[in-house]
């Protein structure tokens, strides 16, 4: 009996060694760009699984195989530090085209301005923008504040004590709030939250007076909110009766963009393949249908345009950050 076990054990060991040896021999380099992709592509997501960025990327994954040689897209969550960890991961990855990732603007622009920055905006190779999610000024459904005029009056009456929720400080929302204060000529008390979900609850529960929120996050609890004004050029088709700041005479435009990028230094031919593939995905009617279902305002831009948008955000952020002395010394 004992001998048998020993024999089997040896056999297992031998078999194992054999498979390992054969496995190692199989890896050989091939012409990279022409056949790209020849293996799975890693998708770095800088926010938690199940978050808005992840959900959007999952929709992309649904159509990925069709346009990329039937190779899988493998998700790699590198979360933390408001996305900075994941963004840094993309920049530092090997630029062989097998690591791409989701990026958010203006997050990357603001983070690159910090003196604790771990990347620069020009270290990304931009593939495509897929979402432009406008900011809104929102109050509770039964709030005494009825419209933008009422909001401004209330803010002036409370003399700076009106509380407005934002997600984090030194973030897209924070800058939007500063911008709004300046344009509307008011002063309010910002109350930062760690995420859209808890911010939504604080407004619903009446713990804060108003908030700056994204359309995507506000859509989840539409019945509980009153949407005061939209910070975009035009009204949005999902909330047609919500006026923009612009049409009321305040030139306040603010949104969050989601897109995809690879590390800089990627083979231009591979980058082109990625850009083409994303272009095709973004124009697939089924994809557009899915995007509507998950409530994300679809807005495709190609890589070059996306890069330009990012750089313009970088300029705006720089002005605001300098003005309010937000860069940490």
């Amino acid at each position: 009996m004992k001998k048998n076990i020993k024999l089997i054990a040896m056999l297992v060991l031998a078999l194992f060694a054999a498979t390992m040896a054969s496995g190692c021999a199989g890896t050989k380099k091939e012409d990279a760009s022409a056949k790209y992709p020849t293996k799975q592509v890693n998708m770095v997501i800088a926010f938690t699984a199940g978050g808005s960025s992840d959900v959007q990327a999952r929709i992309v994954e649904k159509y990925w195989k069709k346009h990329f040689n039937d190779q899988p897209l493998v998700f790699d969550y590198k979360t933390g530090a408001g996305g900075q960890v994941g963004f840094t991961e993309i920049v530092k990855a090997k630029p062989d085209g097998y690591t791409v990732g989701g990026i958010n603007v203006p997050h990357i622009a603001i983070q690159s301005l910090s003196n604790q920055a771990t990347f620069k905006v020009d270290e990304f190779a931009y593939i495509a923008q897929v979402v432009a999610d406008p900011n809104l000024l929102v109050v509770k459904a039964d709030s005494p504040i009825k419209d933008l005029k009422g909001f401004i009056e209330e803010a002036k009456k409370k003399n700076g004590k009106l509380t407005v929720g934002i997600v984090g400080t030194f973030t897209a929302h924070h800058l939007a709030l500063l911008q709004m204060e300046e344009i509307l000529g008011i002063k309010v008390t910002p109350v930062p939250f760690t995420g859209a979900a808890d911010q939504n609850v604080a407004v619903m529960g009446g713990h804060i007076d108003a908030m700056i929120g994204n359309l995507n996050d506000v859509m989840r609890d539409l019945a509980k909110f009153k949407l005061i004004s939209l910070a975009s050029e035009q009204r949005h088709q999902w909330v047609k009766d919500v006026p923009t700041f612009k049409e009321q005479g305040y030139n306040f435009i603010s949104d969050i963009r989601r897109g995809f990028a690879a590390p800089k230094g990627i083979d231009p031919a591979v980058l082109n393949k990625l850009r083409e593939g994303f272009n095709k995905i973004a124009n697939d009617p089924a994809y557009l249908e899915d995007m509507k279902k998950i409530g994300q305002p679809e807005a495709y831009l190609n890589g070059d345009e996306f890069e330009k948008v990012t750089n313009s955000y970088l300029q705006t952020s720089k002005t605001l950050v300098d003005k309010y002395g937000l860069v940490k010394k």
Partner: peptide
């Protein structure tokens, strides 16, 4: 340890 969730200061 890590980024302050509110201010983003490391």
């Amino acid at each position: 340890i890590g980024l302050d969730p509110m201010s983003g200061y490391a």
